[in-house]
Amino acid sequence: MRYRRIGLIVYATILVCCFCGLVIAFFSYQEPTRELGAIYLSRAPSETGAANIVSAIYLNYRLYDTLFEILIFSVAVLGVRFYLSDYREKEIVEKIPESQIVRTSADLFFPPIFLIGIYLTLSGHLSPGGGFSGGVVAGTALLLCAVALGANTVGKRFHEPTLRWLEWGVLLVVLSLPLLPIVVGRLPFTALLPPGTMGKVISGGSIPIDNLLIGIRVFIGTWVIIHYFMRHRGEV
């Protein structure tokens, strides 16, 4: 037992030394480069046609990063679905009595919040926003409704099998997007569609489509998380 402990300490020391050595070696051999950033800044507007350079990078040059982020989000939603559907509450947490203030504010705020979500999703290539934040904002609007009316009441308005089908179908389409340009014969990632004029609503090549699909995926995922938490752990 004691030898094992000594061995572990030696092993950890070696690992730390190796890591520090690698870091020092990396910085002494090459200066951090700034070329790539300059290239992106000069070439992104003409190549992608997106006014928002951030989305030009994460939905074009770094599309794979974004796709794997979406995959991580989907796995998280899958985990919530999987673990919470087995989870039965022994003691039902009693519902907090309905409040007129919450109800009225839900009626008042649901449409604008939902619209802001859609706007953020669709204008991701022009201004700050994008599928991720737009989807979550729209999902938060549903959260407000679920708090005011009860998750099951809101949940009944959705057709559960369609929702599930849409959720995974959209994910499949999103994941197959970077493959399409290769199949069609264009340059990978740069465009399914022509870039268009910068600043127009229809511009940015395939970036708005990506944003829309990601937005739908994130919106459904957010709703699933909210719904499952409220259904299996008690209402708020």
């Binding site: 951030v54 003691e91 998380i225 938490f229």
Partner: peptide, 25 residues
């Protein structure tokens, strides 16, 4: 601003809500 919007939507709204449900029991 992109990060700010996402931070406000996810952390300030969604995560807070999930924590509140978690502490209810």
């Amino acid at each position: 601003p992109d990060v700010a919007v996402t931070e406000a939507a996810i952390n300030a709204a969604l995560i807070t809500f999930i924590y509140i449900i978690a502490i209810r029991k």
